[in-house]
Amino acid sequence: MKIKRYLLLLPALLLIAGFAMPERISMPVAGAVQRDWHPDSFWYEPWGSSGVHKGIDIFAHKGTAVTSTTTGIVLYQGEIAKGGKVVLVLGPKWRLHYFSHLNNINVTGFTAVRSGEVIGSVGDSGNAKGKPPHLHYSIVRLIPAPLAIDGSSQGYKKMFYIDPGNYLVGK
């Protein structure tokens, strides 16, 4: 049947469409600039039970607006032990954008968000309790990039993680 053949093509078309979408990353913390995070914080070690720091921490006053860095779909919003209050957005190129340590969350799961839309506010939830308020921001590839692997600690995991600081300063 022709319908079954088209259904088999659907996953391939969705995969291609995800890569074809333009990816524009915007600053996730209102008013933040490059000096609000340490340039060497991505993959810094030692980093607690995680070993290495797989994102960047953007420091700001508690309650400062956190916006989606990209247009996408909210896959998860809620609380987890280390991240505290978190939002996970699936964006273009099949990349996950992870926002954690939020003070509050302004979106619900499985809804569309636009780049620049407020999704929460800076906080100190999860394992950031008692530390200066900040947003932990990570970008994770769903399709691995083996050429990103290097000899650093847990360097094989770099095929999944992207340094968000490179996007936020226009590199």
Rank of each mutant, 00 (worst) to 15 (best):
L88W: 11
G123Q: 07
F99C: 02
Y44G: 04
P22Q: 06
L7E: 04
K82R: 13
I80W: 05
V122Q: 02
R141S: 09
Y98L: 14
R5E: 10
D57N: 14
R24I: 08
V113G: 05
E23R: 10
H136F: 06
G91A: 10
P92C: 08
M159N: 00
I58L: 10
I162R: 02
P11Q: 02
N166P: 00
V52N: 08
K171T: 04
A112C: 02
V89G: 03
S138E: 15
R114M: 11
S100C: 14
V74Q: 06
S125Y: 08
L10V: 11
I105V: 13
K93V: 02
I119T: 08
K54I: 07
F19S: 02
S125D: 09
G48C: 04
S68R: 05
P11M: 03
P164M: 11
G116P: 01
A12N: 00
S153R: 15
G55Q: 10
I162T: 10
A65T: 09
P28R: 11
V107T: 03
V140W: 04
P22I: 06
K85Q: 13
K158F: 04
K131P: 00
G63R: 07
L90D: 03
W43Q: 05
V118F: 01
G72N: 12
Y156E: 14
I56T: 05
I139Q: 04
L90F: 03
G165L: 12
Q154K: 14
P22G: 07
G63Y: 05
G51A: 11
H101C: 09
I73N: 08
W37A: 09
K4D: 04
N166D: 13
H97G: 07
V87G: 06
G170D: 08
G31I: 01
N103H: 14
S26A: 13
K82T: 10
I162G: 01
L102F: 05
M21Q: 15
Q154N: 12
Y6V: 04
A65D: 13
K62Y: 14
V140D: 00
I119S: 10
L147E: 15
Y44S: 15
G83F: 09
A12E: 00
V140L: 14
I139A: 06
Q34P: 00
D57Y: 06
G78W: 10
A20D: 02
N166V: 12
L8F: 07
G165R: 04
H61D: 15
S68A: 15
N166C: 12
D40K: 11
H101D: 05
I119C: 07
L75H: 03
H61S: 15
P46G: 10
P22F: 09
R141Y: 06
K93G: 02
G78A: 12
L14G: 01
E79Y: 15
N127Q: 13
L13W: 05
Y6M: 08
L15M: 14
V122A: 12
N104C: 03
P46C: 09
P132R: 15
P28S: 09
K131T: 10
K93F: 02
A30L: 13
